[in-house]
Every structure is written in structure tokens, then in C-alpha cells.
């Protein structure tokens, strides 16, 4: 959903994306960032549903009236991370100043040959985190992604970096999770998004900014079956060329007992929602779920 505006206008968007990739890689980041201004104005004006969702989210977090300036800033933040994906996919990591916190947590596990589940969200950029993960060339990395099912984005990613494209496991096939397990058994890392996963009809209600919101139960079901350490990650965009990556231990192992399964899934998911809320407060402008997150549907 977060990349929805990129795919909304089928053909038109495809040309626009190709053009942006060309500008980004040929003319450089300053030129490409200049182009983000008209693009953001356009989307801020014409994407009513997304705009209302952002306004609602910011209002909940900041507790004040949300101005056009706030909205524009939000779009700009999102567009910047999309643009930077092109550079990261093209291997131009040197462009960015990345402050990484808690990396030793992850490397301690990985150096022992222990595979890890990296649990993220649509807060910030996962591409910056994937870039860090892929810098360990000796280690396998897989990412379970829903949005990459969008053929257009997948094609862009593949054209820029086939190696990165190969890390994506698309959710849905019976063998997907077996591949995830195999990767972990080989001591690799698997990235999953906890705010949107697999089966949307299997959800549990968690308190999120004081109001109940639906979160997928699949995340905790999966982590409990995999029996591997779960590490939270957030790749926050901090303006300019700065990113801030946080790693945090979520659980050595998520254990669900059969009798209280549903209740425990809810409790684990609530813990995730709490951490997500914490990081949302650090960087509300990084919230890239552009739909009504608290919707009853």
C-alpha cells in the first residue's frame, strides 16, 4: 500500500518512474530532489485518500492542527526515501550518512551462525536496512514483501539490482515459509513487516496511539513456528542524506502455548504495536501507511 501512488496510474507512472530513475542516476541527487517538489505538490493536492490518512495520523501523534506544510513535508519525506532507494539499489551507499544503533546485537547472533528474524514496519525505509544487511556478503538475506508483488516496482528493482530483487520472497505460495525456514537454518536473516502481512483477514486488535487498530496475527504465528531470535528494525529518514537505523531485541524466541494461543498472539502483537508507536513518535513524518490504519475493515 505504501507505494500505491507509484503504481496508481499504470502507464503514466511507469514512464514517470523510469524518468525519475534516469534523472536520479544521470543528473544526480540534487537535481532529482528538486524534481520531488512539484511531484509532492501534485500528490498532496490530488491524492485525497492518502492525504486524509496522513492528516489523521499526524493529528493523533502530534495532537494539533495539521497544516499543508506538515502534509507537504510528509510527502517529501516519503518521496525522498523512494528516490534514495534507487541509489541504494544502484549500490551508491556512500551518498548516505547512516547512524546505526544496536547493530552489535544482530552481529553477535549472526557471527554465532544463528539466523535472525528482522521485524520491521512501514515506518521509514527498509531499503536502507536491507543495504546494511547486504553489506555482509557472506550472509544470506531474504525479505518477505507484499508490495513487491506490484509488477512495476518489482521490475524497477530488478532492472537496478537483480541481486536485491532475488532477496524478495513473495508472500502466498505454500513453500514461501519453508524457504524462510531454510534461510534461517543456514544462519541467514529474514526481514518481515509486522504491520502488514500475508493474511489480512487474520488480525488481532491492539492499542495503537490510544485507539484499537487491526494488526496481522501472521507475524507472531510465523516467528513462533520459526523459533529464531526476533530483532526489531527501523530505518528512519532524518532529512538531507541522513538515516538513522535502530536494531532492538524483540524476543529471544516467541513462544505460544496451545491453550492460550490467541491471547498470547494478541499480547506479543501488542508489544510490537507499542514499540512501533514509540518509534512513530520519534519520526512521525516516516509513517508510510497511507490508508486509514484504524479502519474497521
Amino acid at each position: 500500500m505504501s507505494l500505491q501512488w507509484l503504481r496508481q496510474r499504470e502507464r503514466g507512472s511507469w514512464i514517470a518512474i523510469q524518468f525519475m530513475v534516469w534523472v536520479a542516476l544521470r543528473l544526480g541527487r540534487p537535481a532529482a530532489r528538486t524534481l520531488l517538489y512539484p511531484i509532492c505538490v501534485y500528490y498532496a493536492v490530488f491524492s485525497g485518500r492518502a492525504r486524509r490518512a496522513i492528516r489523521q495520523f499526524l493529528h493523533r501523534v502530534l495532537g494539533r492542527r495539521i497544516s499543508w506544510r506538515d502534509l507537504f513535508h510528509h510527502y517529501h519525506c516519503f518521496a525522498s526515501t523512494i528516490l534514495d532507494r534507487f541509489y541504494l539499489l544502484a549500490g551508491q551507499h556512500h551518498r548516505f550518512q547512516v547512524d546505526v544503533q544496536g547493530a552489535e546485537l544482530l552481529t553477535n547472533y549472526l557471527n554465532r551462525g544463528q539466523g535472525c528474524i528482522l521485524l520491521g514496519s512501514h515506518l521509514g525505509s527498509f531499503e536502507i536496512v536491507r543495504a546494511i544487511g547486504m553489506s555482509r556478503r557472506d550472509l544470506e538475506i531474504k525479505v518477505l514483501l507484499y508490495e513487491e508483488n506490484a509488477p512495476m516496482i518489482r521490475e524497477v528493482v530488478r532492472s537496478l539490482n537483480p541481486q536485491v530483487a532475488d532477496t524478495v520472497l513473495s508472500v502466498g505460495a505454500p513453500d514461501t515459509m519453508l524457504q524462510v525456514k531454510d534461510c534461517l537454518d543456514r544462519g541467514g536473516q529474514v526481514g518481515i513487516m509486522g504491520d502488514r502481512l500475508v493474511q489480512h483477514h487474520q488480525t488481532t486488535l491492539c492499542k495503537f496511539f490510544g485507539t484499537l487498530a487491526r494488526f496481522p496475527t501472521g507475524t507472531m504465528r510465523l516467528t513462533s513456528v520459526l523459533k529464531a531470535p526476533v530483532i526489531l528494525f527501523f530505518g528512519l529518514y532524518r532529512g538531507g542524506n541522513r538515516y538513522e537505523v535502530h536494531f532492538e531485541l524483540f524476543a529471544e524466541q516467541v513462544i505460544l502455548d496451545r491453550e492460550h494461543r490467541d491471547q498470547q498472539i494478541q499480547q506479543w502483537t501488542q508489544r510490537y504495536a507499542d514499540r512501533l508507536e514509540y518509534y512513530c513518535r520519534l519520526a512521525p513524518d516516516n509513517w508510510f501507511n497511507f490508508y486509514d490504519f484504524w479502519s474497521e475493515r
Binding site: V171, G172, A173, P174, D175, T176, M177, L178, Q179, V180, K181, D182, V198, Q199, Q202, G218, R221, L222, V225, L226
Partner: peptide, 22 residues
Amino acid sequence: DSIDALELSLAISQSYGYQIRS
């Protein structure tokens, strides 16, 4: 769903010694 498939594969491996490979 695919999470069930994983769980089921692990149970089958335990009960029948048949490891379903991805």
C-alpha cells in the same frame, strides 16, 4: 496459509521423518 504449511511440514518431519524441502 503458508505459515500453516510450514508448521505442518515440521510436524510431518517429526512424525514421519519426511522432510519437505522448499
